[in-house]
Design a protein around this nucleic acid. Structure first.
Lengths: 111, 111
DNA sequence: TTTTAATACCTAAGAGTTTTAGGTATATTT
DNA sequence: AAATATACCTAAAACTCTTAGGTATTAAAA
């Protein structure tokens, strides 16, 4: 059950897609959202924060800091390039699943 | 289109499943088979051979050398543990796809 | 009220997997 | 004769994630 480790590159896809769905989110919120939706697919903060910084550095995300009480939240949102890249990542993932189905000769998605 | 890089861990799943379908295969044959079935999903020899050696070391594969002309082929086949692990890997992949669908709110497989 | 758990951010060493870039040798095709 | 395909291999580098910490504020539990 506990298929602990994410598949390579899927973390970025998850982040981008969640931001497409929610306009803006902060790091901790993303970890909780994933835990809430997909119980078996944990994303660790040690992976998340560096990934967010990289996406920001690549110009796919922008940051805005909001003070809540005495604490700072860093809200991330997609840039235009970020939206384009989100589409690309989703297409890549779909392609990957299709190609895997061909090789494995199996329906991977029964939903 | 060229979603070049495999997703983490999928290489092992591919190797094991192809061996489940074909009883025995040699390394080069595996690369060709994948190229033939899934054009966008290239597996490189630099990844394949170390992976085969690891699977053998873990007791999931056995090797038998066959001489063809003046050249040696190393045929790999699943052990009993290898068959069990193949099932596990396939289930992991299915779980992963299902969890991703939940997060992305998308049907990844339209086949 | 003190301690624990949750919220919220972060980094760095290490592990694991794949790419890149080679190498060797035989067999076939041009 | 030279180039391509077959068939095996390794090692350095790149990339991603885990593990294992760290800091600080806020809420809940003891």
């Amino acid at each position: 059950m506990k298929s602990n480790s994410l598949f390579k590159g899927s973390l970025t896809t998850i982040i981008l897609t969640l931001l497409e769905q929610n306009d803006k989110m902060y790091g901790y919120e993303i970890t909780q959202k994933v835990k809430e939706i997909a119980n078996d697919l944990k994303i660790t903060e040690g992976a998340l924060y560096p990934a967010l910084h990289k996406l920001e550095g690549d110009g796919l995300l922008t940051v805005s800091i909001e003070k809540v009480g005495n604490r700072n939240r860093k809200y991330y949102a997609l840039t235009e390039n970020g939206k384009i890249e989100t589409t690309n990542k989703l297409n890549n993932l779909k392609d990957f699943v299709e190609q895997m189905q061909l090789i494995l000769n199996t329906k991977l998605a029964t939903t």
